[in-house]
């Protein structure tokens, strides 16, 4: 009996152990790849995949560019801007007197409310439940409204082609360990994690280094409704080419106009029908009078 009991206990303990190990594994996986935490439902923005780029830590080694090219199988090219073959790029900004300089990593900002996805007439661009803004190339008609709408110049085109498709960073959403650029960064200038956690980390850095970062804030927390690429910089954000967006999401500026469309449809249609009826009636009356 006693033996059996111990055996039972040990089996229970064994199961417990397995369970603990499994959940531990899951936890580890969740930290490495937040998408595992997703159950297919839309996650709140603080749970979204995100990256924190600290320009003060960046040494401009451009390992991230190489890793991006390699993972996305992009051809080498000599460009000074994002392109159909370059999804991320490190640029050096220098003030005219040379006293201030800073690197800046360019890429898709993976907005919380992306203007590209709102503007795409065929829903080829959309934000998946765990944050990355991705592109279904088979839907795209090539209208380039996304390029026009994006405030960061992220969507790009290969203009040498006769039938180009949009090209941009998709945050390596298929990659097991998250974005290739963040994984390779030797200076930890680029960190991958959940948006909420990264904002906390950014704020902690600001708190510890008072006065080091521009306006003691992180770019992307509120700009344009928030972005998933968060940026810390010692120099003014505008100096490194970050647009001064107010907190109102860009799609909100179009939304009201689209919301009144049904009212226009029924309002104008109804008004026209009413005018038609009354003018027909007065025509008849006029004819009767004539007769």
């Amino acid at each position: 009996m006693e033996n059996e009991h111990t055996q039972k206990l040990s089996r229970r303990e064994f199961l417990k152990l397995i369970g603990a190990a499994a959940s531990g594994l899951l936890m580890a996986a969740a930290t490495a790849n937040p998408s595992f935490a997703s159950s297919g439902e839309e996650l709140p923005p603080e749970e979204h995949w995100a990256m924190l780029y600290d320009a003060t830590k960046c040494s401009g080694c451009r390992e991230c560019e190489v890793a991006c090219k390699s993972y996305n199988k992009l051809s080498e090219e000599d460009v000074d801007d994002l392109s159909g073959n370059t999804f991320t790029l490190i640029k050096l900004y220098q003030s005219e007197d040379g006293s201030q300089k800073s690197f800046r990593k360019f890429q898709c900002m993976h907005c919380v409310e992306p203007a590209c996805a709102a503007s795409c007439p065929v829903s080829a661009l959309h934000k998946i439940e765990n944050g990355p803004v991705i592109y279904d190339s088979y839907k795209c008609i090539g209208c380039r409204y996304c390029m026009q709408a994006c405030a960061f110049g992220a969507p790009r085109y290969d203009w040498s082609l006769a039938y180009p498709l949009i090209r941009k960073c998709e945050m390596c959403y298929h990659r097991e360990n998250g974005p290739a650029c963040a994984e390779i960064c030797p200076k930890q200038a680029l960190m991958f994690g959940k948006r909420g956690d990264l904002i906390e980390i950014a704020k902690a850095r600001i708190a510890v280094n008072a006065g080091k970062y521009f306006e003691d804030r992180v770019y992307g927390e509120f700009e344009g409704g928030g972005t998933s690429i968060l940026i810390l910089s010692a120099v003014p954000f505008e100096a490194i080419g970050l647009p001064a967006l107010d907190p109102k999401p860009l799609p909100d500026r179009t939304r009201w106009a689209l919301n009144i469309v049904p009212a226009i449809f029924f309002g104008v249609g109804g008004a026209m029908a009413a005018v038609y009826r009354s003018s027909k009636k007065s025509d008849k009356e006029a004819e009767e009078k004539k007769a």
Binding site: S119, V122, Y145
Partner: peptide, 13 residues
């Protein structure tokens, strides 16, 4: 494609 892949948030749609 606009006929099958709708996007009601898009003025271009």
């Amino acid at each position: 494609h606009m006929l099958i892949y709708w996007n009601l948030h898009s003025p271009l749609f």
